[in-house]
Design a binder for these strands. Sequence first.
DNA 1: AATGGGACCTGCGCGC
DNA 2: TGCGCGCAGGTCCCAT
Length: 266
Amino acid sequence: MPELPEVETVRRELEERVSGRKIEKIIVNASRLLRGISEKSFISQVTGTSITGVQRAGKLLIIELSCGKAITVHLKMTGQLVYPGDGKASRVRFLLSGGGYLDFNDRRLFAEIGLTDDWRRIDFVESLGPEPFDVSPAVFHAMLAGRKTKIKPLLLDQTFMAGIGNLYAAESLFRAGIHPAREARSLSAQESGLLLAAISKTLKEAIRHNGSSLDQYVRPSGEKGDFVRFHKVYAKEGRICGRCGGTIKRISLGGRGTYFCPGCQK
DNA sequence: AATGGGACCTGCGCGC
DNA sequence: TGCGCGCAGGTCCCAT
């Protein structure tokens, strides 16, 4: 799933695989994915430049180019970047020097590709909250103070904290023993500390296992991410909780499916 | 500030 | 087998 661990996995693997390569040709099969720029302009500005590095901001991927600009890619729900790709389901293809296409696939056409002069200054990046790894327990507790909203929808708010999505919100709350519908401001300093530690640990372990491949997500190599083996609650409604023997429940919070164990999460 | 709804799309699994 | 429905990881926008 393209949340922080998946996007970070894609970033690392792309950096290994395509850094230094020149983009020799671009084939656009779905121009609607290009946002704020015409197909013609995108192709003319990007063709002939080289990939100098790959960055990540929250769930946004940034492909830096030798011309000083950067391609931004948000995978949304079903986006994939694959190298080398076979072109079978590609929406956009980049032919690289040395051979092989970097393929951008996206079954649902939700993803967004842009071109920017200064990626750190685009609205999406400027509005992002801090990365979970950069927040101290004291700061995190202060961030929750006064917030009446439920903790799980708050974790999904990218302006609150960057990178957490529906899956890792559920898994982190389970690991911290906190009910997803708790008012954010009701968490004690100890509870918020447990939650921050659970978020950090869960995301890092997921990165170590190259992310979670439930449906569409794959690594640039085409391989699946392995972290699904360690999921405790996500998409496990009706299953037995491995910790207390209770039954995993699914509720709807903020319009999103929310999985948790009523026995373990208070 | 918070919550709820719908929108963007395609495709899967389910019940009938 | 066919059909309609609900659901899916993200984000934005509107209304209350």
